[in-house]
Write a protein that binds this DNA or RNA. Structure first.
Length: 182
DNA sequence: GCCAACGTTGGC
DNA sequence: GCCAACGTTGGC
């Protein structure tokens, strides 16, 4: 067993955002494992770097849909974002030899919601009032409390982690430390 | 399409 | 180090 960093054992929870026109939940499900690249914000990058294998993240469709589609599991921790050298939209000179400051992780589809949870639902739910999604709407990789995660996957009727068998979601949810770890 | 929030850049 | 200008994100 890994006894990593002396953390309260168990996974942590995140919310990651994508514009469906750019990369969608359907594509995530088709590809299964996907490198989560292109994050160009330091706070979001630091959140990527804080992820551990086995952590779970809600997959949010921003802009056009504004709803949470399902769950992904972190299967590879942070490594240099290979899309850095591509230098999109002439943003950075990225001269040869410049260090790559950006990171990505690999995430794996881990079950969709039969009822995607909308931003409207989240906004009117008192249990979710403190979500980073609401407080920092522009942050594309945000931490999530265990209670928020379990609440949302119940709302969405999560189909659970693949391969965890019957009662997967409830089993997982019950295993979630409801005591926040800030 | 507009606008608020927020991050980045560059002049001083 | 401050701040104005500008760009981007994302909700409405």
């Amino acid at each position: 067993m890994q006894k990593n960093h002396g953390q309260t054992r168990g996974r942590r929870f995140w919310l990651i955002k994508s514009e469906p026109g750019c990369f969608s939940w359907a594509e995530q499900c088709r590809n299964v494992v996907e490198p989560w690249t292109g994050v160009r914000n330091y706070q979001a990058r630091n959140n990527l770097r804080a992820m551990a294998a086995g952590d779970l993240a809600l997959f949010y469709h921003s802009v056009t849909e504004k709803r949470i589609m399902g769950v992904v599991e972190v299967v590879r921790t942070a490594y240099p974002d290979p899309t850095f050298s591509a230098t999109p939209q002439g943003a950075k000179p990225a001269r040869a030899g410049a260090a790559n400051p950006w990171s990505c992780v690999d995430v794996k589809a881990a079950g969709g919601f039969s009822h995607p949870v909308t931003l409207g639902q989240i906004k009117q739910d008192p249990a979710l009032a403190e979500m980073t999604l609401l407080k920092q709407s522009r942050l594309s990789v945000a931490p999530l409390r265990g209670e928020e995660f379990s609440h949302i996957v119940r709302l969405g009727d999560w189909s659970g982690l693949q391969g965890e068998g019957q009662g997967g979601p409830e089993k997982l949810i019950s295993g979630i430390s409801e005591t926040g770890e800030e």
